[in-house]
Design a protein around this nucleic acid. Structure first.
Length: 853
RNA sequence: GCGGGCGUGAUGGAAUGGUAGACAUACCAGACUUAAAAUCUGGAGGCCGUAUGGCCGUGCGGGUUCAAGUCCCGCCGCCCGCACCA
C-alpha cells in the first residue's frame, strides 16, 4: 500500500503548474477578472507563520476564483525600503541593498514551496529603481497639481548620534542607542496635502460596504470631523503684539463653565513670553522634551504654567480668566488654544483640581443637581439636560442642540464663527535617511526648489556609501548631491531627504497591474485589473496605510495615472488575525523574564520544566511570535517535516481568520494525520472494483451536495475554519459510507476539489489517481444540485418557559395547527401543563416551539 | 490618556435573538499488538444520580424578551492603532 508523502507530491504538482503556467495573469476581455492581493511583506529575511496564514487566505480565494471562471491576478512583491536595512548595515556592515536583495531571495525561496497561485512574473521590490523612478515621476506630477508642499515640522533629534529618530526609537524620552535625552528639532520637510481630502475621504467611507465596520469607524475617528466655535478672548492688557487669544471649542455651549485659557507650549504667545520669563521657558523646554507621539503626550502627567496674563470672558467684561500654558494642548489641532471647562471634561477637571481653579457647573442631569466633585459630568450629546442660566436662552435641551444654538447665537452676535475642523493632519513624507526613494527635486540658489526633469529619472541612490558615520549618507556624498539645476543649469544641490516608506506601499497595488510599464501605470491594464477585488492584511494597517492609499488613488486619478473607478482602490478588505504561540518563561535573579525555546522544555505531570535544570516554567499562551520571545515557528521546518499542505490546512482550520490562531505542535501533527487519512481513503476507493455494489448511494450523494454547498459558502464568506470543519465532516461521512464505487468516486473527487484551495497538492494527486481530467486547479468549481439539498423532515425542539424539555420530528411543511396538536400531545408538555392550558404557545416554523405556562 | 476590537468546555472554536459546545486538539476506554507507536471503534461542559432525569453554565453585575453567547447599560481583563516601525 502506498502512503501519503507530501514532499514527493508537492514538488511534482508545483512543477506541473509551472509547466502549464496556470497562474499567469492574463488580460482576457472575454472573462470577468478578479484581483486578489495580500499586503506585501517587508523582506526581513525569514517568512513566519503569519505570512503563511495571510498568503494562504489569499490563495484560497484566488484558486476558488480561478475554478469559478475568473481571470485572476494574484501578485507578490516586497516592501523593501526602510530602517531595518540601514540598521543592519550599521550593526553588521555591508550595504542595505545587498542585505535587502539577499533577504528577498531567501524569502522567495521559502515562499515558493508553499505552492501559492502567484504570478511571479509580476514580482518587484519597492527598492528597484524601475519602481521608485516611477514613484518619483508621480511625485513631480503631484507637485504640479499642488498636492505637495514644504513646511517646518518637529522631529526627534538624538544629540549624541546626531540623527533623527523614529518614534519607536525613542524609549522613555531617550535615544535607543545613545540613551541620550531626545530633543525636538524643527526641520523644513515635505508634505502631501491629504487634508484637502479630509471631507471626501470621510464621506467615501460610506461606500465601502465590503470593508469591516471597525476599520471604517477607526478611519472616521482618525479623520475626526468636528464642528465647533472659533472666537477670541481679549487680553486684559496686551502682551507684546498679542491682544487676544483665539480658541477653538467643540463645546461652546459650556462657555459659562470656563475657568482658564490653555495654550500649547508651541503656541506663538507661549513662545513670545519665553523671552522674558525664564521659568516659562524652562517649562516649555520640559514639554518639548516629551516624545513627539500623541500617545506620549496624552499619557504624560497633565501639567500647566500660569503665565500671569488674564483675559476677559466674552459674555461678561468683568469676569477675568487666567491664561495657562498646558502640556496636553496640541498646536496642530484647532488654534492651539482652548478654554477649560472642568465640570464637563475630565482632563480639565483633573487640571483644575491640581491647580486649585474654580469649578462651575453649566448643566445638570434632569433628575440630579449634585455639583461636580471628582468626576466630570459628560453625558452623551444626545441626552437632554437641564441648563443653568444658559446665555442663548436654553432651559432643557440636549448637548447637541445647545452646541448648535450657541454657534448660531455667537454668529448672530458677531463674536464667533462656526468652524468645521478635522483632526487629520497633512502627511509628512520627508525622512532624513538613505534607504528610501529619493525626493526628486533640486535646490537652486536662483530658481529655488525645482523638480528634476522626468528624463533624468530615476534619481538613483548612490551605491558608494558607508554607515560608519552618524546621519544621512546622502548628506555627505558630494558627487551625488552636487548637480545641475534642471531649470537654469547652474550648479545646484539635490534634496537629500528620502520618502516615507508608506509612499512606496500607497500605490504598489496599481503597479502590479502593469509592473514593467515605463510609466507608473498603463491605462489599459489599470482599467482591466483595477480595483483590487479582495485585499487582505493585518488590522494594524487599518488607519495609516489604508488611508494613505485611498489618498494616493485620488492623487493618481487627478494626475492621470488611475481611472475614475479606482478612486477607492480596494473593493473589499479583510483583516486577518495573528499567528501566536506559547512562550516559556523563567525569571532571572532580578526578576526579569528569560525566554526559552520549545525544544528545551520538558513536560511533567506537575507542569513544564526546563530540561537542563529542572526549573519550573511559566507557560504563557497566545503570545505574538517574536524572535526575542523565542516562540517563532519556522515554516521551513513545518514544510520539511509535514509538507506545505499541512501548514496551509492548519492555518485555515480552527480559528476564524479575523482572529488570532495559536500554533501548536500537536495541532500540526494532527493535521498531517488527517491529510494522510484522506490520502488513504482515496487510495482505498481507487482500488474498489467496478462491480462493488453497496448501499446508501443516495445518502452519500446527498452528503456530497451538502458539502459542496457548505464549503462554497464558507469560502465565499471568509469562514475558512467552517469550510474546513465541513470538510472534516464530509471526509468522515465518506470513510463510513458503504456506498457503491460510483458514488464513492464522485464523493472523493468532489472532496479533492473542495479541498483544493487549501491543500492544492494533495487535491491534484487525488484527482489524478481517480482519473480526473486535466489539473484540478483548472477544473470548474462544482455546483450543488438543489434537488439533493431538500430535507423533508425537521426536528423541532420544544421548550417549556424557555427551557428545552423535548423534541418532535415533523414534516418540513407541516401547518402550525398540526404542530400545535402534536406539541400539546407531547408527554413532557402534558406533564408540565399538569392538566392546565398554556398561557401562550409560540411556534416558529422550522425552528422551535416554546410553551409558556 | 484617546479611538477601535475581542472574551464560550482542559484547548482552538460552532451557534439568521430560537436545542449552547458542530468540527478539531488534548484526554479516557476498547480493538489490533508480546509490548509500544501507528491505525480503527466508542466516550466525554460541570455538579448530583445506577438510570429515566434534575440543577448550574458563554469574563463579572444588572436589564429588555415567550426565548439572550447574540440586544441594551455599567464594570474587569487582553489585543490593535495613536501620524518617523513596517
Amino acid at each position: 500500500m502506498s502512503r501519503y508523502t507530501a514532499s514527493d507530491i508537492e514538488q511534482k504538482w508545483q512543477a506541473a503548474w509551472d509547466k502549464a503556467d496556470v497562474f499567469k495573469a492574463r488580460r482576457d476581455e472575454s472573462k470577468p477578472k478578479y484581483y486578489v492581493l495580500e499586503m506585501f511583506p517587508y523582506p526581513s529575511g525569514r517568512i513566519h507563520m503569519g505570512h503563511v496564514r495571510n498568503y494562504t487566505m489569499g490563495d484560497v480565494i484566488a484558486r476558488f476564483k480561478i475554478a469559478s471562471g475568473f481571470s485572476v491576478l494574484h501578485p507578490m512583491g516586497w516592501d523593501a525600503f526602510g530602517m531595518p536595512a540601514e540598521n543592519a548595515a550599521m550593526a553588521i556592515g555591508g550595504h542595505p541593498k545587498t542585505w535587502t536583495y539577499g533577504n528577498i531571495a531567501d524569502m522567495r525561496a521559502q515562499m515558493k514551496p508553499l505552492g501559492l497561485s502567484i504570478d511571479w512574473s509580476r514580482e518587484f521590490a519597492t527598492c528597484d529603481p524601475e519602481y521608485y523612478g516611477q514613484q518619483q515621476a508621480m511625485f513631480i506630477d503631484f507637485m504640479a497639481k499642488g498636492l505637495v508642499y514644504r513646511k517646518n515640522a518637529v522631529v526627534n533629534w538624538d544629540p549624541v548620534d546626531m540623527t533623527v529618530l523614529a518614534n519607536e526609537q525613542v524609549i522613555d524620552g531617550k535615544g535607543w542607542r545613545s540613551n541620550a535625552p531626545v530633543e525636538r528639532r524643527e526641520l523644513t520637510q515635505w508634505f502631501f496635502k491629504i487634508s484637502d481630502y479630509s471631507e471626501e475621504l470621510l464621506e467615501a467611507l460610506d461606500g465601502l460596504h465590503n470593508w469591516p465596520e471597525k476599520v471604517r469607524t477607526m478611519q472616521a475617528n482618525w479623520i475626526g470631523k468636528s464642528r465647533g466655535l472659533q472666537f477670541s478672548f481679549n487680553l486684559t492688557e496686551p502682551a507684546g503684539s498679542f491682544d487676544s487669544v483665539e480658541v477653538y471649542t467643540t463645546r461652546p455651549d459650556t462657555l459659562l463653565g470656563a475657568n482658564f485659557i490653555g495654550i500649547s507650549p508651541d503656541h506663538p504667545l507661549a513662545r513670545a513670553l519665553e523671552a522674558e520669563n525664564a521659568d516659562l521657558a524652562a517649562f516649555n523646554a520640559e514639554c518639548r522634551r516629551m516624545g513627539t507621539s500623541e500617545a506620549d503626550m496624552e499619557k504624560a502627567e497633565k501639567k500647566g504654567f500660569d503665565t500671569g496674563l488674564r483675559v476677559k470672558h466674552p459674555l461678561d467684561d468683568s469676569w477675568e480668566l487666567p491664561v495657562w500654558v498646558a502640556n496636553f494642548i496640541l498646536m496642530d489641532y484647532g488654534t492651539g488654544a482652548i478654554f477649560g471647562c472642568p465640570a464637563h471634561d475630565q482632563r480639565d477637571l483633573d487640571f483644575s483640581r491640581k491647580y486649585d481653579l474654580p469649578v462651575v457647573d453649566t448643566f445638570f442631569a434632569l433628575d440630579d443637581d449634585t455639583p461636580v466633585a471628582d468626576l466630570a459630568f459628560v453625558p452623551p450629546k444626545t441626552e437632554r439636560v437641564k441648563w443653568v442660566n444658559h446665555f442663548a436662552g436654553l432651559d432643557i435641551a440636549t448637548g447637541q442642540e445647545a452646541i448648535d444654538a450657541t454657534i448660531d447665537w455667537a454668529e448672530e452676535k458677531g463674536w464667533g464663527k462656526g468652524v468645521t475642523n478635522y483632526r487629520l493632519r497633512d502627511w509628512g513624507l520627508s525622512r532624513q535617511r538613505y534607504w528610501g526613494c529619493p525626493i526628486p527635486v533640486v535646490h537652486c540658489e536662483d530658481c529655488g526648489v525645482v523638480p528634476e526633469k522626468k528624463e533624468n529619472l530615476p534619481v538613483e541612490l548612490p551605491d558608494d556609501v558607508t554607515f560608519d558615520l552618524p546621519g544621512n549618507p546622502l548628506d555627505r556624498h558630494p558627487t551625488w548631491r552636487d548637480c545641475a539645476c534642471p531649470a537654469c543649469g547652474k550648479a545646484a544641490k539635490r534634496e537629500t531627504d528620502t520618502m516615507d516608506t508608506f509612499v512606496d506601499s500607497s500605490w504598489y497595488f496599481a503597479r502590479f497591474t502593469s509592473p514593467r510599464a515605463t510609466t507608473p501605470t498603463d491605462a489599459a491594464d489599470a482599467d482591466y485589473w483595477m480595483n483590487v477585488d479582495q485585499y487582505i492584511g493585518g488590522i494594524e494597517h487599518a488607519i495609516l496605510h489604508l488611508l494613505y492609499s485611498r489618498f494616493f488613488a485620488r492623487a493618481m486619478n487627478i494626475t492621470g495615472h488611475l481611472p475614475d473607478k479606482a478612486i477607492e482602490p480596494f473593493n473589499a478588505l479583510f483583516t486577518q488575525g495573528m499567528v501566536t504561540h506559547e512562550i516559556y518563561v523563567t525569571r532571572d535573579e532580578r526578576d526579569r523574564p528569560v525566554y526559552h525555546l520549545p525544544e528545551d522544555i520538558e513536560w511533567h505531570e506537575s507542569g513544564a520544566r526546563l530540561g537542563a535544570t529542572g526549573e519550573e516554567i511559566t507557560v504563557v499562551p497566545s503570545a505574538k511570535m517574536s524572535k526575542s520571545k523565542k516562540n517563532v515557528v519556522d515554516p521551513d521546518d513545518i514544510i520539511s517535516s509535514y509538507g506545505a499542505d499541512t501548514a496551509r490546512w492548519f492555518v485555515m482550520s480552527d480559528s476564524p481568520p479575523e482572529r488570532d490562531v495559536e500554533w501548536t505542535a500537536a495541532g500540526a501533527e494532527a493535521t498531517h494525520k488527517h491529510l494522510g487519512r484522506v490520502w488513504t481513503l482515496s487510495d482505498r476507493i481507487s482500488k474498489m472494483s467496478a462491480d462493488d455494489g453497496g448501499n446508501g448511494d443516495d445518502d452519500l450523494t446527498r452528503a456530497t451536495h451538502r458539502a459542496i454547498r457548505d464549503v462554497t459558502e464558507g469560502i465565499e464568506s471568509f469562514a475558512f475554519n467552517k469550510a474546513v470543519a465541513k470538510l472534516y465532516e464530509f471526509t468522515n461521512t465518506i470513510a463510513k459510507s458503504k456506498a457503491g464505487v460510483a458514488a464513492q468516486k464522485t464523493a472523493i473527487m468532489t472532496l479533492a476539489q473542495l479541498m483544493s484551495p487549501m491543500t492544492p497538492h494533495l487535491a491534484e494527486d487525488i484527482w489524478a489517481r481517480q482519473g480526473g481530467e486535466g489539473l484540478v486547479v483548472n477544473a470548474p468549481w462544482p455546483k450543488p444540485d438543489p434537488a439533493m439539498l431538500v430535507e423533508d423532515t425537521v426536528t423541532l425542539p420544544i421548550q417549556v418557559n424557555g427551557k428545552r424539555r423535548s423534541e418532535i420530528a415533523v414534516p418540513v411543511d407541516m401547518s402550525k395547527e398540526e404542530v400545535e396538536k402534536l406539541v400539546l400531545a407531547n408527554d413532557a408538555v402534558k406533564k408540565a401543563l399538569d392538566g392546565g392550558a398554556p398561557k401562550k404557545l409560540i411556534i416558529v416554523p422550522g425552528r422551535i416551539v416554546n410553551v409558556v405556562i
